[in-house]
Amino acid sequence: MINTTEKDSNYQDLDKMSVLELLTNINKEDRSVPLAVEKAIPNIEALVNVTVERMKKGGRLFYIGAGTSGRLGILDASECPPTYGVPFDWVIGLIAGGDTAIRKAVEFAEDDIEQAWKDLEEYDINENDVVVGIAASGTTPYVIGGLNTANEKGIATGCIVCNGGSPIAAIAKYPVELIVGPEFVTGSTRMKSGTAQKLALNMLSTSVMIRLGRVKGNKMVDMQLSNHKLVDRGVRMVMAETGADEETASQLLEEFGNVRQAIESYKAKQI
């Protein structure tokens, strides 16, 4: 049986379409992606819950994948520290072929069924951690091997795949299946499948960070103040939360270098 992600596109003769037709039809296909993700919310919820539980015990969240899927995991992991002010080893993205594969495909790296566990072992992975395999096909050997060994070690495992009934979903204890259908360009899973995976990763990491207390109200109070835009945003956040004027908020932020601490300090002085 042919996997859904490998089925022939719903559109023929793409090379004969005008630019407007191409864009319109791609957009039409993309509209189906959020609906596919919506159907998986209960499964995403279960994965969030176990991740929060393990991370509260000192565990970490690992993503393993190859190609586009691996890059999406690395992207999500790399954005957690600046967004939520968490250590760089809280969420870790690993890709088949190593860092070289982030920019350039490494031939047959995804076919090594033992390498993912070797990569995970470099981080002294333990039973408090969570490993999420990301694979549009649901068949990537690199991911299969990593999840299998993680299960044997009592480590919580999840996955984000885009085919129903895949080997990876059968292995993962907390599977998430995002069935988006055939790609606009046949087999090009960087499109709808990649978009669905990105949405699910957004939901996973954002929900986890909120449940771990890294958001106050709806604000990123622990974000890294790494440029002028973020400093300005931080000042506005301090002003909104405390009622302080801009000069005072700016001084507080400069003193503490952190929105949360600036707010707490101001409120402590008002008591």
Rank of each mutant, 00 (worst) to 15 (best):
R103Q: 09
V132L: 02
I179Y: 00
G145D: 03
Q261Y: 11
R190W: 07
K28H: 14
A46W: 00
S207I: 14
K57I: 09
A268V: 12
G97W: 05
N148H: 11
I44F: 03
S69R: 04
K267F: 11
I113F: 10
I41N: 10
V215D: 02
T24W: 07
D129I: 08
A116D: 09
G158K: 10
C80M: 15
A200C: 11
R54E: 12
Q251M: 12
N25I: 11
G65T: 12
T140I: 14
I171P: 02
D15G: 06
G164W: 02
D245Y: 10
N202H: 09
E152M: 06
T206F: 07
A101C: 01
I26M: 15
N25G: 06
G98H: 10
C80V: 14
A46E: 10
N49M: 08
D76E: 12
R71L: 05
E246A: 15
A156F: 12
N163V: 07
S78K: 02
P141I: 13
E29S: 09
N128A: 15
Y174F: 15
Q270N: 11
E127D: 14
E247D: 15
R214S: 01
A101E: 00
G73P: 00
G165K: 09
E38Q: 11
A268L: 14
K219P: 00
E127K: 15
I263H: 06
G154C: 04
L72C: 05
V106M: 09
E121K: 12
V130C: 09
V48F: 10
P167L: 05
T186K: 10
N218M: 01
S18M: 10
V131R: 13
V33S: 01
I74G: 02
I2A: 09
M191D: 07
I26F: 14
L230W: 04
T189Y: 08
V176W: 01
I271S: 13
I263Y: 02
G213Y: 04
I263L: 04
M203A: 13
S32Y: 00
V235A: 09
N151E: 05
K153F: 12
N148K: 15
Q12D: 13
I2P: 09
K219G: 00
G257F: 07
G85Q: 03
F184K: 00
V37E: 01
M220W: 03
K56H: 07
M203D: 02
N218C: 01
R31N: 08
K267V: 15
T83N: 07
E122L: 13
E183C: 03
A109N: 06
A262P: 06
N218S: 09
